[in-house]
């Protein structure tokens, strides 16, 4: 069956724009702000938001990417590095972090990311931005910045396409 587009290119751009504005509102000027994207698509979204902040404020906000595939509570053999180098790890300390992912679902990915960030870097605050919140949380986790709430059935899949790897920007429900 055909996929259903729930966010087209223009609305995806607008969602990122609004998230950026809201980040400015909450952070009062963006001091000590660090964007952390969860690989793969969260990283590209983090860069997009950083670009937007730069266009508006003329300052470069640090962007990092973390890989938590080896850090989930359902995976043994934790790798603590998250793919960050030593310099990046120290740069997290006392910063206001906005964690960025494409889809918020059960919350397990985010929980793993939170654990890891607190474990390695001791940031000041952590906020969460997601492009899509599809519901079905299994943990008490809530996003501070949401591009779009898309109620879904358990058996549906949400697919986020980004220009950088998929050649286009869109969000689709895959049946």
């Amino acid at each position: 069956m055909a996929n259903k587009e729930v966010l087209d290119n223009a609305s995806l751009q607008r969602a990122l724009t609004r998230i950026t504005y809201e980040i400015i509102e909450r952070n009062k000027g963006g001091q000590d702000l660090v964007l952390v994207g969860i690989k793969t698509r969260g990283e590209f979204l983090a860069h997009r938001i950083a670009n937007r902040l730069e266009q508006l404020e003329g300052v470069k906000i640090p962007v990092m990417a973390i890989d938590i595939t080896n850090f989930r509570d359902d995976v043994l053999n934790h790798d603590d590095s998250l793919g960050l180098n030593e310099e990046e790890k120290t740069n997290i300390a006392d910063k206001n972090i906005v964690l960025i992912d494409d889809v918020l679902f059960t919350g397990r990915t985010i929980r793993a990311a939170l654990d890891a960030l607190i474990h390695i870097g001791r940031p000041n605050t952590i906020a969460l931005a997601v492009l899509v919140d599809r519901g079905h949380r299994e943990l008490p986790i809530r996003a501070d910045f949401v591009g779009k709430n898309i109620p879904t059935a358990q058996n549906e899949k949400i697919k986020v396409f980004v220009q950088e790897i998929d050649g286009r920007d869109a969000v689709e429900i895959v049946h």
Partner: peptide, 20 residues
């Protein structure tokens, strides 16, 4: 007219957060 879409998304967001 995208400005109105922005406005209504902001309004939705406000309403949702307010409730939370």
């Amino acid at each position: 007219t995208a400005v109105f879409a922005d406005f209504f998304e902001t309004v939705e967001d406000y309403v949702e957060h307010y409730n939370q």
